[in-house]
Design a protein around this nucleic acid. Structure first.
Lengths: 218, 218
DNA sequence: ACCTGAACACCGTTCAAGT
DNA sequence: ACCTGAACACCGTTCAAGT
């Protein structure tokens, strides 16, 4: 992380990391599978930093859900600004890592506590994360590039009810949202997130909001 | 572009491109300065494709500015979906390329024709492009990473009135927006785009819109 | 003017060999 | 169990040499 912050993510190489650790590059492979493990670790550090940074947002019981979501969004942004390489790294990972999922769960929980339906909250999650990260992978459908047929099988497995039930303990709101949206969906073939619908929803929110801002300005 | 679409941007290497052209890798350097020129070319192709794709959006004189902006946003999205490597490539470029600037100008023009102030339109541009691309560089302040002091000088030069006047012929609305925002700004030291303000504005738009969607649902 | 081969300084990763 | 050196198949780029 120090190397990435100082010289960019491109400077983070196995050989560079090795010299930083005063060891040969090949020694690292005795402790970590490959470079992907290091990148996963970086994402994990970012997620933990976001949770720590947003700890202040959860102290007092808030009246308006927007206050907590706003505070958490701004906290995430502060972390991203400290580590400008983070957004593109996170979005480039094939699946959403566990730790990032935990960040999402916290925001989702705030929305649900605020009385939003899972449907609206789901769309809100897409809107907020696209603002902070750009295009974001769906939690359970990583088509990514170079996805082999075995990966496709893994996607389908990840959507089965047993998997969702197992997740309910750790991320209750996320699991509930997935379950409800899956149930409502008639054609689950396209994946439970219809990105096109999410995009158009966010677009409508922004356009209507801008229009209103323009009117209240005049 | 064919290689990038088929195998991802990582597959686009000088050596690979050379074999594709049935030539040695080093020959390319007699025609192009370096790999950056190839990446610039890819961005240029994407921008042209967006303009072609949104051509249909500009045919009829529209009553509501939101219709044209929506059509252009969806056109841009269709192009991005065809070339999933494009958003991260575009955002990773240090400055906004001329051709992408032309795409922005067209959207901005639609907003201004619709009666939006430059201030609201400016914020709208940030909101829309962060949705489509994630964090986006400011057109005249590419801090990027590894920016040398000479780059910093170039930034300041790009903001001088002569530069803005020269741009007015090509991108009139963009130039007008920059001029007006620069004038309004008391402390131009921080750059004419205050990213924090833009972020909070978009965030507020989304939160208020979600709240309204939740209320109208109930 | 255009192309090429060898070379340099890098990558991630494997594998047999050391302690 | 942990580390290492050599090696393999890649990068972008330079430079002197070819036609």
């Amino acid at each position: 992380m120090q190397v990435a912050d100082a010289e960019g993510l491109a400077a983070v190489s196995m050989r560079r990391l090795a010299t930083e650790l005063k060891v040969e590059a090949m020694s690292i492979y005795h402790h970590l599978a490959n470079k992907d493990a290091i990148l996963d670790g970086l994402v994990e550090l970012i997620a933990r930093e976001i949770l720590a940074e947003s700890a202040s947002a959860t102290v007092e019981p808030v009246s308006d859900w927007r206050d907590e979501v706003r505070a958490r969004s701004l906290a995430a942004r502060r972390v991203m600004m400290r580590h400008p390489w983070a957004p593109s790294l996170i979005t480039s990972r094939r699946a959403i890592p566990f730790e990032i999922q935990a960040v999402f769960e916290a925001v989702l929980a705030a929305m649900i506590r605020g009385g939003l339906s899972y449907r609206i909250a789901h769309r809100g999650m897409h809107a907020l994360s696209s603002m902070a990260l750009g295009f974001v992978n769906e939690p359970f459908s990583p088509p990514a590039e170079g996805s082999s047929s075995s990966d496709a099988a893994a996607e389908i497995d990840a959507l089965d009810p047993a998997m969702i039930a197992a997740m309910a303990d750790v991320f209750p709101h996320t699991a509930a949202m997935v379950a409800e949206e899956l149930h409502a969906e008639s054609d689950a073939m396209l994946g439970w997130c219809d990105s096109q619908t999410e995009f158009e929803f966010t677009l409508g929110l922004l356009l209507d909001g801008l229009d209103q801002a323009a009117r209240s300005e005049a």
